[in-house]
Nucleic acid binder design. Structure first.
Lengths: 137, 137
DNA sequence: CGTAATCTCTATAGTTACTATAGAGTCAAG
DNA sequence: CTTGACTCTATAGTAACTATAGAGATTACG
């Protein structure tokens, strides 16, 4: 199948496939006589794998590590679990941080209903005060 | 004061200050005879304002809009409130998405305790299955 | 006084994961 | 036959910095 069909089946963009190839996540495979890329079901499987990982916010580098170890049967998979743990911790931090941010923004939002001039806007005024709002390092 | 002192007082990096100047968020101000940048308390105030906004995840462009309107007394501040509203909505979406992601990752994590080889690792296997995990578009 | 560490400058490239653009060749349908 | 859809490559842009190189200025120490 050609790149457009692969993209459709995998639910991603054509340019993204070419980008993944460039980054070494998809193999530089066969080409037709007119230089069009050709793919098979194995490529689709790998692309699905990649997108799956991306849905879990794994970085392209991490995915590359996973792919390149794919057939290294004897290696221990300990690091895979650890990698997931790190991601879960990261996500906890992000959620916490976003929640705090949300509260700050809601506080801010209440200050002004939008009927003022910019000079009098309590939101703008508040943003000018450097009090205790360093919830992000 | 020189750039290092400003950075210290504001709690940011020297390079960041130069970057903000380049992006038009801080004025290209005075220089000493040996071309060192010179700052005063007003600059510190503005830098604090910028960092405050950044803590609220406002983009540099949004901050620029806020700064450039700063003294336009007569303009209505309606858009400021709306901007904040949009941010709050954004953050709600992000939190929701991260929570779902976290559950997926926790599911994944439970599959394997790290005692397997990569070939047998249930996490890796699971990542290879393209079932219903498209929680992000 | 010399020198070594620290601070400052500019310009450029790298980061992440794409996205957009330009310019060109190929192919199928009407 | 030509119009539109698809493909190709190469390059630049995105956000908000970060890193690097190479050079001049200043300060602290012995």
């Amino acid at each position: 199948m050609k790149i457009g069909e692969l993209a459709k089946k995998a639910g991603c963009k054509v340019v993204t496939i070419r980008y993944y190839e460039q980054k070494g996540l998809l193999p530089k495979g066969l080409r037709t006589s007119n230089n069009y890329r050709l793919y098979n079901d194995k490529d689709l499987e790998r692309l699905n794998f990649i997108m799956h990982c991306r849905n879990h916010h794994l970085s392209l580098d991490e995915i590359k590590r996973l792919i390149s170890c794919d057939k290294n049967d004897q290696q221990s998979c300990e690091w895979v679990g650890k990698m997931i743990d790190v991601h879960i911790q990261e996500i906890n931090k992000q959620i916490q941080s976003l929640k705090e941010l949300k509260h700050h923004l809601q506080d801010l939002r209440c200050k002004c209903s939008g009927q003022d001039t910019l000079a009098n806007c309590a939101i703008v005024k508040q943003l000018h005060q450097h009090n205790n709002c360093q919830h992000l390092q």
